[in-house]
């Protein structure tokens, strides 16, 4: 029998830590029983269309965001809520907790997509081209903050106290440079890689979203593997995620100094004020209506 080919399509570049982790850890670990074949840069399937491609049998793997899954199943928006996950370890605890099972089951039953493991993307920070010091969400009032173009992201921007603007990523650098927007939010590695430090003045370490992705696999492919190979593949996925997680955490730590050296002001605001404002905004919003009862409490209880 031929080895199954696991085609993965994702929009990130080949140098992204997720790509490096999958190519150096995941691929080699499964090579005895499957061929890992990644495509980066979103050339096989457009960003945000990979899940349906898997579901329709045209792709085997993807790196999916909670926002993307919430377009199918609104309850996934809980994992894209601000100040929900405390840190990378908290994400893993939540993903492996029984509370996650109904979410995994639904994605498998209705999309045929198995959520293999959780990948750490980094803590999103507010990055502004203004000098004004930010202490509380009230200080963000009037700032045009670029957020990715979807309802969930725009809401996060609003809950931070800013005026969220959807600008395509390719136009963001110019928009920051000319002042069409006053700032953007991303993990520090993105600020570095996309050169936003060239056109912004400060980073407010809000850590408002500990961002995650799910590594996904076609349920059909999974079911076709022997239990032994399933276990090997699961371990390979977890190991790759862990490898990427440690790399990204290290990079984030180094970049605080790295970006200071580029002349940016970097400081922590009143995190308590941000956390309570944002959490309240989510609980009062329509998003939370789709969330299972008590889930926020359960997730909070898993934080160490």
């Amino acid at each position: 029998q031929d080895k199954p080919v696991l085609r993965l399509s994702s929009v990130n570049s080949a140098t992204d830590q997720r790509a490096v982790a999958l190519e150096t850890v995941f691929g080699p670990a499964i090579k005895d029983f499957a061929t890992f074949q990644p495509t980066w840069g979103g050339t096989l399937f457009k960003q945000g269309t990979e899940l349906e491609a898997i579901s329709r049998g045209n792709l085997e793997m993807s790196i999916a965001s909670a926002q993307e899954l919430s377009n199918f199943f609104p309850e996934f928006s809980v994992f894209s809520a601000g100040y929900l996950h405390r840190d990378a370890a908290h994400q893993v605890a939540v993903f492996n907790d029984p509370l996650m099972q109904p979410f995994k089951d639904k994605a498998e039953a209705e999309l045929g997509v198995k959520l293999l493991t959780v990948m750490y993307l980094g803590r999103r920070q507010v990055n502004l081209n203004s000098d004004k010091e930010i202490k509380t969400p009230a200080d963000m009032a009037g700032f045009k903050l670029r957020m990715p173009p979807s309802d969930a992201w725009q809401f996060l921007g609003k809950s931070l106290g800013a005026n969220p603007v959807p600008v395509p990523f390719a136009e963001l650098y110019t928009a920051l440079q000319t002042g069409a927007v006053d700032g953007q939010d991303n993990p520090l590695p993105t600020v570095m890689d996309a050169k936003f430090y060239e056109v912004t003045k400060q980073i407010v370490l809000t850590s408002h979203l500990v961002d995650l992705n799910y590594l996904t696999l076609s349920k059909k492919v999974w079911d076709g593997l022997s239990p032994e190979n399933q276990a090997k593949l699961q371990k390979a996925a977890d190991d790759a995620a862990e490898f990427g997680r440690q790399n990204q955490l290290k990079k984030e730590d180094e970049l605080v100094e790295g970006l200071k050296a580029k002349g940016l002001k970097i400081y922590e605001p009143d995190l308590g004020a941000f956390r309570s404002t944002v959490q309240k905004a989510y609980l009062d919003s329509d998003f939370s209506k789709a969330w299972p009862a008590d889930i926020v409490d359960k997730i909070n209880a898993l934080a160490k």
């Binding site: 650098y173 890689d193 996309a194 050169k195 060239e198």
Partner: peptide
Amino acid sequence: YALVSNTSIG
């Protein structure tokens, strides 16, 4: 190009 090459856009 800047995005794929890690080069300064400016």
